[in-house]
């Protein structure tokens, strides 16, 4: 991830909304805009954006995923930071794309990689905000699932610090927190049984701490976990970390 060393910050950014927010979680994208604007950032949403291409990339169809990546890189061309409310889609931009273009490097792909920030990472390490002036009306137990694609990035620490700084927030540690929720995109479709068992085990650990809200930086993990939880008759309130930041503002 050497390409990430010189990431640009600034108060004018492009929002990569992600296909999951486009299809299911519109409020997460809204919260991203509202929080960034609250911080004085101007957010532009290029309307021709679609998906980062990760489903094809993870399936091994790199001809298809490179096509999508080139489209995305052209939609987000320029010098502005690209902000993503997903560790997974962000990692696709700055890691996956570099991998799939390693034999034929592409300037637009490299530029997108260098400018991409996961939103919590951007708030903490791009804008330098590590304390959040939010407040819960009453003590609120938060189980924070650190999504796998944020391993090795600043997102996990950033999110944890911001969440923990909210008044009345209680972060509840849980067992085997390094373990995956079992989603993995196409993995959960091609390996439904293993994926389901991984998710159930994750839920056991998470719910044992009796959280009020399950929080993550990736809606894909939350979609998977809640999808399992509902089917198992143990639904859990789940929100993206950026929604917590917005909702807790006075």
């Amino acid at each position: 991830m050497a390409s990430q060393l010189q990431r640009p910050s600034g108060k004018r950014v492009l929002l990569m909304g992600t296909c999951l927010c486009d299809a299911f979680y519109d409020d997460v994208a809204r919260a991203t805009v509202e929080v960034l604007e609250h911080l004085g950032v101007t957010v532009e949403f290029p309307d021709n954006q679609t998906c980062c291409g990760q489903p094809a990339f993870n399936s091994g169809d790199w001809v298809a995923s490179r096509k999508v990546a080139r489209h995305t890189a052209s939609v987000f061309a320029g010098e502005q930071p690209v902000i993503v409310p997903s560790g997974s889609c962000a990692a696709m931009n700055f890691h996956g794309n570099i991998l799939q273009f390693e034999e034929n490097p592409d300037a637009a792909i490299d530029s997108l990689a260098r400018r991409t920030w996961e939103v919590m990472d951007f708030i903490a390490n791009g804008l330098g905000i590590t304390k959040w002036p939010g407040k819960f009306a009453e003590p609120t137990r938060i189980a924070f699932h650190r999504s796998c694609h944020s391993r090795g990035t600043g997102s996990g620490e950033a999110t944890l610090a911001l969440l923990a700084s909210i008044e009345n927030a209680i972060i509840t540690p849980f067992g085997q927190d390094e373990q995956c929720c079992g989603f993995g995109g196409t993995f959960s479709v091609t390996f439904p049984h293993i994926s389901g068992r991984m998710g159930s085990l994750k839920l056991d650990h998470l719910l044992a701490t009796k959280p009020d809200i399950l929080v993550s930086g990736d809606m894909s993990c939350l979609m998977h976990l809640n999808g399992l939880a509902v089917a198992q008759g143990r639904p859990i309130k789940h929100l993206h970390a950026i929604q917590i930041l917005r909702n807790s503002l006075p």
């Binding site: 909304g17 927010c21 486009d22 299809a23 299911f24 979680y25 519109d26 994208a29 809204r30 805009v33 949403f45 309307d47 959960s188 479709v189 091609t190 439904p192 049984h193 389901g196 998710g199 979609m223 998977h224 809640n226 999808g227 399992l228 509902v230 089917a231």
Partner: peptide
């Protein structure tokens, strides 16, 4: 088959397709 297996254990959230774009 894989979709059936998947949905046998999980539910999908309701689609809000395009709502964010409209809001923006």
């Amino acid at each position: 088959k894989p979709l059936q297996d998947w949905l046998g254990q999980r539910t999908l959230p309701d689609s809000h397709g395009g709502d964010f774009r409209k809001w923006m």
